[in-house]
């Protein structure tokens, strides 16, 4: 049976993982390659790298990181952040990314999602949707949640699927960083609205939140950063907990 996936997310800037990662015996808590290696050994099903570098000067750094990680970590790697054109997708894939995540640029230029998926296949195009509850619906935000778009999140998810997205990374901006759990209503609404896999993100504080994301939110994968980075929970611990609660996982 297909397993639900657990995906640690690493925010990278200037070639370093920020937010820090507290693994026991990790020599360098900011080295993306070392952290990726450790998550791989711990049983992560995939890894996501989010390039939050503001200036374009440092953009090539992420390519070198992905090259180094791809040479020794043999699980799927997703890279997002600053993807603006098909050439950016190509550079990341050539460096060793298996999937590329498109966020703000999908809103600015939806054709990019179609062009990139036509050229490289839907399997490697993830569309990241940052969403906030506004009144009685959810709205899509860009620029790290600062800019409202007026787009309805459910309609947007359907549109991205129709343009060729192979997967959606759904982040609740209301929950992100709160440790109060995923926005389950939002996750479920989007998961029910499309046929492609959904990665739930934003708000994980406990292992029960991961279970809820899958069972109540109907997510196909769960993404988390801080609960894994700071050593509160291990990947293996999370998987065992999910299995105890009747969720199929890769142990």
């Amino acid at each position: 049976m297909l397993a639900k996936r657990i995906i640690p997310c690493l925010d990278v800037t200037h070639g370093r993982v920020v937010k820090g990662v507290n693994f026991v015996e990790l020599k360098d808590a900011g080295d993306p390659v070392e952290i990726a290696r450790r998550y791989n050994e711990a049983g992560a099903d995939e890894l996501t790298f989010l390039d939050i570098t503001a200036s374009s000067d440092d953009r090539d750094l992420i390519l070198h990181i992905i090259e180094a990680v791809a040479a020794e970590v043999f699980i799927p790697l997703t890279v997002g952040g600053g993807v603006r054109e098909v050439g950016d997708v190509q550079r990341l894939l050539n460096a060793g990314a298996d999937k590329v995540s498109i966020n703000t640029s999908a809103v600015v230029n939806p054709q990019l999602v179609k062009d990139a998926s036509d050229r490289y296949g839907s399997q490697c195009i993830v569309v990241a949707i940052d969403s906030k509850r506004v009144g009685d619906h959810w709205e899509v935000f860009t620029h790290g949640g600062r800019k409202a778009t007026g787009l309805d999140a459910i309609e947007w998810a359907k549109k991205m699927e129709s343009l060729g997205a192979g997967e959606l990374l759904l982040t609740s901006m209301d929950r992100d960083g709160t440790k109060s759990g995923f926005d389950l209503e939002l996750t479920r609404a989007i998961s029910d609205a499309v046929d492609i896999p959904i990665i739930a993100s934003g708000g994980v504080g406990t292992l029960q939140h991961l279970v809820d994301g899958v069972k109540e939110g109907r997510a196909d994968a769960v993404l988390a950063a801080s609960i894994f980075h700071f050593g509160e929970y291990g990947i293996d611990e999370a998987k065992k907990y999910m299995k105890q609660h009747g969720i199929e996982v890769r142990l």
């Binding site: 049976m1 297909l2 397993a3 639900k4 996936r5 099903d45 839907s122 399997q123 192979g166 997967e167 029910d192 046929d195 492609i196 896999p197 959904i198 109907r218 196909d220 994968a221 890769r250």
Partner: peptide, 22 residues
């Protein structure tokens, strides 16, 4: 086939088939 994509609990199975399977 779209009509066959349900698990034994009746939940929708996504396509593409993406992830780790036995």
């Amino acid at each position: 086939p779209h009509e066959a994509m349900r698990d034994d609990r009746g939940n929708k199975l996504k396509v593409p088939h993406m992830g780790w399977n036995n």
